[in-house]
Amino acid sequence: MLDCAIIGGGPAGLTAGLYTTRGGLANVTMFEKGMPGGQITGSSEIENYPGVTGEITGMDLMMPWPEQCQRFGLKHAMVEVMKVDHNDDGSFTIHKGDGTSEDALSVIIATGSTPKRAGFKGEDELFGKGVSTCATCDGFFYKGKEVAVIGGGDTALEEAVYLSNICSKVYIVHRRETFRAAPNTIKRVMDTENIELILNATPEEVYGDKMGVNGIKINTPEGLLDLQVPGVFTFVGMNVNNDVLKKEDGTFICDVNEAGEVIVNLRMRTSVPGLYAAGDIRIDAPKQVVAAAGDGAVAAVNVIPYVDEVKNSREK
């Protein structure tokens, strides 16, 4: 029986692992299907992680975390978690992708979020064939070529600036007149010569052939615009990864809001005793590395007394 099972190995899960083990829990496993680090490893530049200055990528930022977090005995199980069950005796069962399972006294769920699909025609068929959600991964396939960026938030604008250094031209397609990104990021977009804004516009259809995308048709106030670009990058928000908390009947083992985000209090406690949530998966998450890490620490410092109490009562 694990003292604590941490599901997910991004900033929230790693920090939860650091604080639970350093705080005295002996038997803690972090379940992460691959190398820990999380979605931030796909970001081209981090400007807002306190204490870290200079040009640094998400991958650079996360590089030392796993080693530090495992220094106090955190174990990493490189396996995908399919489902978490809440048992009658208050413990949890972690069902793994290899068909085996493991029991735990407490669970910190830190599964994060996944980029949303924008929902236009052809997007699913051409995903990975010119439609992408990762500029640092796929930008270099479009060196010297024109690309379109769909979205108007912080991520869309930051990645558009990154792409403008590689590509000959970047079109930003945004459904509104104004952007809701940080002023500093908006200014950088405006100051970049090879970025062109297409505002009040929504993608209609991305088209291509066997080798990939050839262009995208966009609804604009002036009519249908056909952009003949080989690359389309979408940054239109995130969906939380809450499947592991779903029961067979489709309901969740703990309370979630209408967006499927896990409802927590200021201790990151969910509606189920012993189940905590941290990072992007929780309600009102600012979706920032520093906040996710903070959540992981909060969840961990509250898990420790919970586990001690459960152990004491079980011994009696």
Binding site: K33, G34, M78, V79, E80, G97, D98, F127, G128, K129, G130, S132, C134, C137, D138, F141, K210, M211, G212, V213, P230, G231
Partner: peptide, 28 residues
């Protein structure tokens, strides 16, 4: 036609038979 990484292509006797785009689990 790889335009996204990681792309994982499965071959049998030199013939491309399946493709996966993006990170996935070992079991997958």
């Amino acid at each position: 036609g790889v335009r996204s990484i990681p792309t994982i292509i499965f071959f049998k006797d030199g013939v491309q038979v399946d493709t996966m785009v993006g990170a996935a689990s070992k079991d997958a």
